[in-house]
Design a protein around this nucleic acid. Sequence first.
DNA 1: GTCTATACAGGGATAGAC
DNA 2: GTCTATCCCTGTATAGAC
Lengths: 215, 215
Amino acid sequence: MAVVATGGTGRPEKREAIARAATAVFGREGYVRASMDAIAAEAKVSKRTVYNHFADKETLFLSVALHNSAELTERIAALMARYLDRVVDLRQDLVDLAVERARAVLSAGDHGALGRAIRAEVTNIPADVLEAWLDAGPIASQRDLARHFTTLADRGLLAFDDAALAAEQYTLLTFHGVAERSFWGALPVADEEVARIAADGVEAFLRIYRAPAAG
Amino acid sequence: MAVVATGGTGRPEKREAIARAATAVFGREGYVRASMDAIAAEAKVSKRTVYNHFADKETLFLSVALHNSAELTERIAALMARYLDRVVDLRQDLVDLAVERARAVLSAGDHGALGRAIRAEVTNIPADVLEAWLDAGPIASQRDLARHFTTLADRGLLAFDDAALAAEQYTLLTFHGVAERSFWGALPVADEEVARIAADGVEAFLRIYRAPAAG
DNA sequence: GTCTATACAGGGATAGAC
DNA sequence: GTCTATCCCTGTATAGAC
């Protein structure tokens, strides 16, 4: 069970097209229902080319899963930098970050959909690959968030003993409610609902962690 | 697409055995991988008997999903009654409830496993059936919890404007972190981890919602 | 020398028939 | 309770095309 992408003597643009198509099809159909024929068709390559770039269906799935995980972590890191690097109105920035993160992860695009496929297959994924996926994805994002929170605490805007715990509870209060309601992006959630949950979550979060001195 | 269980002219004990077997197999394998042969074998009946009681695979799945949802709601309601009807140490009772709920939903048993299968199939489940599942399961449990919280507020132990929001945030803080970590029961989580998350979650919850007068 | 197109072997699934 | 019609999937093989 090769974790690293296999082979790949072919043209890189084909490989990328296959990976993109696989992300879309696995996200739409889930691992079991997705067929290599459908992926080849979506990538507009022959099935033989798919097998030339990726050893088998499982390798292809795990490969795009890891790639997708890292990509999403980057996008979320960019959002955190945008909203938490230069905070002027802490509450508003935390709400905006929550809304944008929910949109990035759960929007109809491929990101959340592939995450759902991975969660569905979790019992069939080798432990080391699952760990790599977690480490490049959710765990990395939580680490990034904890770092930002530490900076905010240094600036006197937040107060806590455990930055990782604060980051986890922020995520639970502002994100997981939406993720659960939408089944990780499978069903649409109204924008107002996302905004409401974000506002309520930040309100609760600030009651726990706002520094006494701060407004 | 019949929502209600179909047919059922056969012996009720056979029907129950099939439903139990289907719950186990769907939970272990997921909807697509589970085969009617495996379910018949696990129930120790012939495949013909399975099709005599349930019209097809989809009907069987949706039927056991709804049943399972209602059953789990009952078990959680019993836990809430046990820990919240006669509160003496609010913090301890909230922690114990969180731990027991996590155990009930996520333990290696069939309950959480089937829930995982449903979440994986959410895009293939008819909207009305999904709504019925939510209403008999997660939504019902949240309503029950909100009712208990209202009583606790009347007794001066909690303080909030919106009981439903408080119940949702209690669930997020004390339960969803464990659910996510274990992928809804697919992977084991150490008892100490469950206890730690419950304690941290209740601590945060009480900082938001403990009544000023109460200890 | 990689890609396309298509065909094929082998296995397994549902659902119904005997 | 077994047997079978029908279908779909993975992965390979066999052609030729740029």
